[in-house]
């Protein structure tokens, strides 16, 4: 017992020392000449090495956007592949500058563990996939269905809550891994398969006949995913947050990777402020005035990144859904740059 207490004390000491020692991150990043970004070693569409071993994906492009803003070069990133278990330690210990690894924003992670979530880059949530021939248009019609679900996850609990709160019967068929679950669903062991939306689209591509299956529109849980930084460095926190907002604003203003150079001459004052032809909004972030121009030029706006990695440009074909701009009935909304 005393041993354990001593160990805990050591761990606490180590934590406080290292987080106190982490100074202004932006200076460290500039001095190093490289951003160190924690990414997922393998989630289709979000972070995955391609044939050549280069990381690609939605979360990876966020790292590239930060690097573009800081260095005007999106390749100046070192990616550290982190498992779900060691991602927070890596951030806490200062091994990485930012964690961009489909991490769910929860209260306890900010309050209890000393992290800050910059923004919600992707609104995820649990959904259902069913066969088209079942003719089910809504999750509310799933009463009496058997549902394949991964064991011991929040997914399993959400499923139970959802069916209970709507007073519907269901038969859970649990599996240890998502792989087993989707295999069994494919062989007809259950009527529906449930998982996070982003995951459902990826799992669907593994089915024998992906086009025979449809993903229902209902989202039954909240899984806001976003980049995470350590507490205690507000400037860096702002930089990460505004990297996302710059990309969203760019989409809103119709500034794309292709037309960004033309847009430099645009008369729209919002566009001018975004691209740095008016005012100097990068200064407070420790960046140059054209920080957002660099992001869009090298990586693209939010919509472009989404479509390239997750949407129509990829095999996942995820719909924008709640990740559409607020002007298009979605939730992506950026405070004004002014």
């Amino acid at each position: 017992m005393t041993k354990r207490a001593a160990l805990a004390a050591f761990a606490a000491l180590g934590l406080s020392v290292s987080s106190a020692a982490a100074g202004p991150t932006i200076d460290a990043v500039k001095k190093r000449g490289q951003l160190v970004c924690g990414v997922n070693p393998g989630v289709a569409g979000f972070g995955l090495p391609d044939d050549k071993g280069q990381y690609t994906g939605f979360d990876v492009d966020f790292c590239r956007a930060i690097a573009a803003a800081v260095f005007n070069d999106p390749t100046k990133v070192r990616y550290v592949a982190l498992s779900a278990k060691d991602r927070f330690t890596a951030l806490q210990s200062g091994e990485i500058d930012v964690l961009s690894r489909n991490t769910t924003w929860t209260q306890s992670r900010e309050v209890g563990q000393g992290f800050l979530f910059g923004a919600v880059t992707y609104y995820d949530g649990q959904g259902f996939m069913v066969r088209k021939k079942l003719n089910v248009g809504s999750a509310l019609e799933l009463s009496g269905a058997s549902v394949c679900v991964q064991q011991g996850t929040t997914t399993e609990l959400n499923l139970a809550d959802y069916f209970r709160s709507h007073d519907m019967k269901y038969e859970p068929v649990v599996f240890a891994t998502a792989d087993e679950g989707i295999k069994s669903y494919d062989t007809g062991r259950c009527d529906a398969f449930t998982s996070d939306m982003s995951q459902l689209y990826a799992e669907r591509t593994k089915l024998g006949q992906p086009d025979d299956h449809v993903i229902l529109p209902e989202v039954i849980s909240k899984e806001p995913l976003g980049p995470v930084v350590r507490q205690g460095d507000d400037q860096w926190f702002n930089l990460v947050k505004w990297t996302h907002y710059a990309m969203v604003t760019a989409e809103e203003l119709g500034v794309t990777q292709k037309n960004v150079d033309d847009k430099l001459k645009a008369p729209n004052p919002e566009t001018k402020r975004l691209l740095g032809t008016e005012g100097n909004f990068g200064e407070g972030l420790g960046l140059t005035a054209d920080w957002a121009y660099r992001i869009v030029k090298h990586v693209g706006n939010y919509g472009e990144i989404f479509e390239k990695n997750l949407g129509e440009g990829s095999r996942l074909k995820i719909k924008r859904g709640i990740n559409a701009l607020w002007t298009k009935n979605g939730l992506q909304y950026a405070p004004p740059i002014r």
């Binding site: 995955l48 990826a202 591509t205 593994k206 089915l207 095999r315």
Partner: peptide
């Protein structure tokens, strides 16, 4: 990891 690549996804 490679088996997750959506380009190659399949049963």
């Amino acid at each position: 990891t490679a088996r997750l690549d959506p380009e190659w996804a399949g049963p």
